[in-house]
């Protein structure tokens, strides 16, 4: 099964609920006020937020005339919103340091497990840094992942200073010429000032070993997150330099529409999406694919009618 169809499968629920209705509306009705309002409501139900949704509708009103069908117009509009495409991190001077951050319970540690699988499969030598020294057993959870993936594991146990662990891990990777270090940070609510300072400190300390590090700072966001996702992203952005978003748990019925709002308002690209619980269910994100999977028609024609 190719990445593309896998993504489609993962996004099946989204496609079959909301976007199926959008497609029907766009297919069978004229684009009158009532239809537009219904589409707007559906977009809001995807957690896109009122502002972004009405923006999309405005554009749809303007542009739909230029297209053969309104659905093509909507596809293009959504595509434009997500325009920034994923670029693979380039490892020029290894190790490449990736810091993974986010609020509690979004799936950071699991994402790291899956990420390390991607990297190990590409032939990279990976180091995992257990900097979530707060949550009970988080260190243990990461250790299990490192064993499964055959990655090095650097830890000082629970309660240790996370910045010291990060320093150790990056130094270790540098001296043993490993390719990639992934730092697992503790989940923190973006409103906790001290914890955000701690995050800054981790990054500062890493710079002492490698001045350009961390090269990537990935913010993990749960697809079920509502409008607070935007506030979260903003606050994390204020504290550290976020380079990309990982959207997890897209295999539920959640629509992940908040991603549109985040990309539009804050200009952070989405880099990976989690579409299932299995270990290889983390995929590099592609905007066109994402929108196509949400709105694509060809496969549905057969199943739907």
């Amino acid at each position: 099964m190719g990445i593309f169809s896998k993504m489609k499968l993962g996004l099946k629920k989204t496609r079959e609920s909301i976007f199926k209705q959008v497609r029907k509306l766009l297919k069978f009705k004229k684009l009158d006020e009532e239809t537009l309002e219904e589409i707007e409501e559906l977009l809001i139900t995807s957690d896109m937020g009122v502002e972004t949704a009405s923006d999309v509708i405005e554009q749809l009103k303007e542009k739909s005339g230029d297209y053969d069908s309104p659905i093509e117009a909507l596809k293009d509009i959504l595509n434009d919103l997500l325009k920034m495409n994923h670029t693979e991190p380039i490892v020029e001077n290894p190790p490449l340091v990736i810091s993974v951050v986010g609020v509690n319970g979004t799936g950071k540690t699991t994402t790291i497990g899956k990420l390390s699988k991607l990297f190990v499969e590409q032939g990279n030598r990976v180091v995992l840094a257990a900097c979530d020294t707060f949550r009970a057993a988080a260190v243990e959870q990461l250790r299990l992942w490192s064993e499964r993936m055959g990655a090095d594991f650097i830890s000082q146990g629970q309660g240790a200073d996370p910045a010291a662990v990060a320093f150790d891990a990056v130094s270790h990777a540098k001296s043993k010429s490993k390719d990639i270090v992934i730092i697992d940070t503790a989940g923190r609510l973006h409103t906790k000032h001290n914890l955000m300072e701690e995050l800054k400190k981790i990054h500062r300390v890493v710079k002492k070993v490698i001045p350009e590090a961390p090269h990537e700072v990935l913010l993990v966001i749960d697809a079920t997150t509502g409008q607070n996702g935007l506030v979260q992203a903003k606050k994390f952005m204020d504290a550290v330099e976020i380079t990309g978003i990982v959207l997890t748990k897209l295999d539920g019925t959640a629509k992940g529409g908040i991603v549109f709002a985040i990309v539009k308002e804050l200009g952070i690209p989405v880099k990976y999406i989690g579409v299932g619980e299995a270990i290889d269910d983390l995929k590099p994100f592609d905007a066109a694919e994402f929108v196509e999977a949400l709105l694509g028609t060809e496969e549905l024609e057969e199943n739907e009618v």
């Binding site: 957690d47 749960d222 539920g252 908040i258």
Partner: peptide, 11 residues
């Protein structure tokens, strides 16, 4: 989770 969006009703 208090941060859950529109999908909370479904779950």
């Amino acid at each position: 989770d208090a941060m859950t969006g529109q999908d909370a009703v479904n779950s």
